Amino acid sequence: MSRQAGAGTWRAGVRRAIRICSRPGPWKRGPVLAALALLLGLLMLLHAQIPNRIGNLGSLVETFLPWFGVFVPVLLAGALWRRSASAVVALLLPVVVWLNLFGGLLSDKSHPGGDLTVVSQNVDAGNPDPAGTARDLAASGADVLALEEITPQARGAYEKGLAKAYPYHTVQGTVGLWSKLPLSDTRPVDTEMDAGPLAATKPAAVKLADNRALRTTVATDHGPLAVYVAHLGSVRVTPRTGFWTDSRDRNAHALGKAIAAEKNERVVLLGDLNGTTDDRAFAGITSRLHSVQDAARDGFGFSWPASFPVARIDQILVRGVKPASSWVLPATGSDHLPVAARMSW
C-alpha cells in the first residue's frame, strides 16, 4: 500500500470516528417522541382538569378516553426506530395511567348467577326491520327490556313482537319498558325541567309525545325495584360549536335530580345516555348510581355505532342491587348494539 493511500484511509477512519462520536446517545435521541409520550400520559391523568369552556373539549376527551391508549404502540414504534431510550422510558407514564384507568376491563369481572336479567337498546328511529329487532330482543330472555327511540310508526311492531314474552309494558313518548313482572307507579320523567319557560308552556299531550324518559316500579320476588328508562339529547361535533352537548347535559341534570328524589333503595337506570360514564356531565347520575358494565363486564362494552363500536353510550346503572355480569348482544336492525346485565339482591 502506498503512503498516500494509507494516509487517505487514516483520514477516512478519523472522519468516521468523529461522526460516530458526534451522534447523540440513546438518551438524547427522540426528544419530540419523549415529549409526546409525556403529554399523552398527562392528558389521560389530568383529563378531569381539561376545561369545557372551549367547545366542551374536556367532555370530548372523556368520551373517547380509552382510545388514547392506541397512541402508545405508535409512539413505541417511533421510539424503537429512533433507538431513543428517553422516549421508551417516557412511555411508562401513559402506560401506567391507561392501565390504572382501564386495565381492570381487560379481565373478566363477571360472576355466575343473578336474579334478574335486563336488556336495553336504542332501537333507532330509522330501523328498517322493527319486527325483526323485537324478535331478536325477545330471544335474549331478559326479564326487563327497555327500548329507546320508539317512533309512532314502529310502536305497533314492537308491541306485537314482544307481547307473548312480556305481558306487562308501558310506552311513554319515545321510550318503553317491557317486563315479565308486574309494573306499577308508571309515569313520564320530565328531562326538560331546566329548559326554561317555553317547556313549561307546552300542552301535556305535546310533552308526552316528546317524552324521552320514564319511571316505573317492577314487582320482584325480593321487593319493588324502581326502573328508569331514558334517552338523553343528542350530541354533535361541528367546527363552530365544537362538541355540542347542551341538550344532553340539560337532560342529564334533570334526570339526576329525579334519581336524587327517588325513595326506593333499589334503582336501575337503562338507556341511551349519549355519553360515557367517564364524562363529567353525568356526575349528578354517577354519584348516585354505579355502572353495572364497569363492575361486572368482560371487555369495554362499546355499543355505538353497531357497525364499528367506538364508545359505550348505552348504559345500565344501579343502586341497591349487586351486578353479576354484563355483556353486549349481537346487532339487530338498529345502529346501536343492545346491552345486557344480570344482577342479584
Rank of each mutant, 00 (worst) to 15 (best):
T277S: 12
P323I: 02
G275K: 07
G299S: 09
T276V: 11
G320M: 11
A283V: 12
L289T: 03
T276M: 05
R319L: 04
D278K: 14
A306P: 01
F282I: 02
D279N: 15
P309G: 05
A324V: 12
S307Q: 12
R288L: 12
W304H: 05
T276P: 00
P323W: 05
G275I: 01
G301S: 12
S287V: 10
W304I: 00
D278P: 06
H290N: 14
G320L: 02
I313H: 04
T277C: 09
R312I: 03
T286I: 11
R280V: 15
D294C: 02
V318F: 01
F302L: 11
F300P: 04
A306D: 00
I313R: 04
G301E: 06
Q315M: 08
R297M: 15
S287A: 11
G301C: 10
V310H: 10
G284Q: 00
S325H: 10
S303R: 04
D278E: 15
S307M: 04
F308W: 09
P305A: 00
W304S: 01
F302R: 06
G301P: 06
H290S: 14
T276E: 03
A283E: 10
V310R: 12
A296R: 01
D314C: 03
P309N: 08
T286R: 11
T286P: 11
A295R: 05
G275L: 01
S287N: 11
A283I: 06
T277N: 08
G284N: 10
P323T: 08
G320W: 00
G320V: 08
D298N: 15
D278F: 13
P305Y: 09
T276L: 07
D294F: 02
Q315V: 08
V318P: 00
P305N: 10
L289F: 08
S291Y: 10
D279E: 15
R319Y: 00
V292D: 07
R319H: 05
P309S: 04
A281K: 09
R312V: 01
L317Y: 05
T277R: 13
D294A: 13
S291W: 01
G275V: 02
D278Y: 13
I313G: 00
